[in-house]
């Protein structure tokens, strides 16, 4: 697998290298954990700046007839609002800022990752787990705060015969507890696998070109076209995973708002 034409081929060909977290500034250790400003943090703040700045610039005109950028902002707003309203009804609109934040944050971070050379924050499981746990804790906290003990009806769907009810309750509890796991790992694994695949195919081009010379350049068209096609697919996946994450958040929030459905 190693090409001998390049020095330091590990960083060029290794598909894992792109997920490396690099320290920019270290702030020392707190309780044995090193706190450092990393490339991951830089991209997070980049996403925050892009989202807030973009929205503010787009709505700066407050035009009655929207321009191109204001249309994008409005369409995104309506898209997320419709998604939430469809799942939870008007009662769920109090979570709109949270859902919009999740959607825009994940979408922009995913799309950042699609730009060659940039870091994909959402390919780190700790980030997606934190976001999924945020949703999970919100659902549980709000569910108990609003419904009290009636929140447990979530685990006992109505219309189930009494003799299989214990089994159903067990399954419901397991599925409820596994939600943050699947919720977070889905985003993480999709981003990770997509970027590894992209990098592997892109690496083939370099290997063919350095290993086989002119013939390698000709054959290298095959992995190149594959990379182009995969990039298109990954763009779709980047959007779709942000959408799925948000949609599932809406569905889980609906459980907190209306348990026993």
């Amino acid at each position: 697998m190693k090409s001998n034409g390049l020095k330091e081929d590990a960083s060029d060909m290794d598909p894992i290298h792109q997920f490396e977290i690099k320290k920019i500034v270290s702030f020392g250790h707190i309780g044995g954990v090193e706190i450092a400003f990393t490339n991951s943090a830089a991209f997070m703040f980049g996403a925050v700046a892009l989202i807030v700045g973009g929205l503010m610039l787009a709505t700066a005109g407050r035009a009655l007839v929207p321009g191109r950028f204001q249309s994008v902002a409005e369409i995104t707003y309506e898209f997320v609002a419709d998604m939430l309203r469809q799942c939870t009804g008007e009662a769920g609109m109090r979570f709109f800022p949270l859902v919009f934040t999740l959607f825009s944050f994940i979408l922009v971070l995913n799309l950042f990752g699609m730009i060659p050379g940039l870091f994909t924050v959402t390919s780190h499981i700790i980030v997606t787990v934190a976001l999924a746990l945020l949703v999970f804790v919100t659902v549980i906290g709000y569910g108990f705060w609003k419904n009290g003990l009636r929140f447990f009806k979530l685990f006992a769907p109505s219309g189930i015969p009494i003799y299989i009810l214990p089994l159903v309750v067990l399954i419901e509890i397991i599925s409820f507890l596994s939600r943050p796991l699947s919720h977070s790992v889905r985003l993480f694994a999709n981003m990770l696998a997509g970027h590894i695949t992209l990098k592997v195919f892109a690496g083939f081009i370099g290997m063919l070109a350095t290993g086989l010379g002119v013939f390698g350049f000709v054959v290298g068209i095959l992995p190149l076209s594959m990379t182009v096609a995969l990039t298109a697919l990954e763009l779709l996946v980047a959007f779709l995973q942000a959408y799925v994450f948000t949609m599932l958040t809406c569905i889980y929030l609906n459980d907190a708002l209306h348990p026993g459905h």
Partner: peptide, 12 residues
Amino acid sequence: ARLIFGFAVTEA
């Protein structure tokens, strides 16, 4: 929405 939910649960 149900399509996406079913897809997400299966994909889990």
